[in-house]
Nucleic acid binder design. Structure first.
Lengths: 140, 140
DNA sequence: AAATAAATTTGTAATAATTACAATTTTAAA
DNA sequence: TTTAAAATTGTAATTATTACAAATTTATTT
């Protein structure tokens, strides 16, 4: 069952060390768009030899190689997403949870960039209130 | 000429103090999507009594009241935009400059949110290389 | 105008995310 | 087995942001 993960890492030119497999597996199994800290805190008990710096290093590598996406939908921390299929995200302004939205919510057409510009990536972030938090919209 | 600014602040329920006028004016005149630090560094010489905390406070107030937009297009710092007309942004991955794009590059349709969700804002960030930086795409 | 209250601003200290980096450990190659 | 390369660690440094109490400014009331 690790094979899938190892293959994925190799496909993106990442040599599959134990820690890298652990982080990648975590991201595959937890579709919560976790922060560095969440990943570290959750993995550390079972992998006591894991340091937070390694989590940072590993995520940087995975993102650089395109095996993982990073999101700036949360002003405080970078969020990581092991799902690199084209989709977008919704973040609840009250509880902070991040939800996946289908690819349909991404602009279909390329933006009209000034001539000579080249587009590499498009990020679409939706924010609002999720089902559980709607009643408690903060007083203005 | 300050009248425009004062009126704008009042329209958004911000009492126009000297510092607030200065920050708002700066954002109106500098379409560079500056950071807190840029604003503070540029204004401080002419307004020596201005503190960085006040710039933070003021921007928080302006954003909360809807008189200014904040962007998370830059992983490092929050960027501020005095232009609240609907438009989107492109950030050059090499030089870091942020360019305005017309509103047309924003998804026209509401995303298909899960039922019971309410949408408050949509952020669209494009990233790539600007005209001046295209030749120097980093080696992979 | 003086006294009082409210709002604004300041400056410093605390918090927290991230990066730098040298030392150590692990893995691969000769 | 020795040597070299890669991966990981742990600590320290950096940096953006927030907390907060004190000081200042502005508005209100007497």
């Amino acid at each position: 069952m690790n094979n899938k993960i190892i293959e994925h890492l190799c496909n993106y030119g990442v040599k599959p060390s134990l820690h890298r497999i652990a982080v990648m597996t975590y991201l595959m199994e937890h579709k919560t768009h976790p922060t560095v800290d969440m990943i570290y805190t959750d993995l550390n008990p079972s992998i006591p030899t894991l340091s937070k710096t390694t989590v940072y290093n590993t995520l940087k590598l995975l993102v650089d190689q395109g095996a993982v996406n990073s999101l700036n939908i949360d002003e405080k921390n970078v969020r990581y997403d092991g799902d690199i299929f084209r989709h977008s995200h919704f973040r609840c302004k009250s509880c902070g949870k991040i939800f996946d939205l289908p690819a349909g919510s991404i602009p279909a057409l390329e933006p009209s960039l000034p001539s000579g510009f080249s587009l590499v990536e498009t990020q679409v972030y939706y924010k609002g209130y999720c089902k559980d938090c709607i009643p408690e919209i903060p007083a203005s």
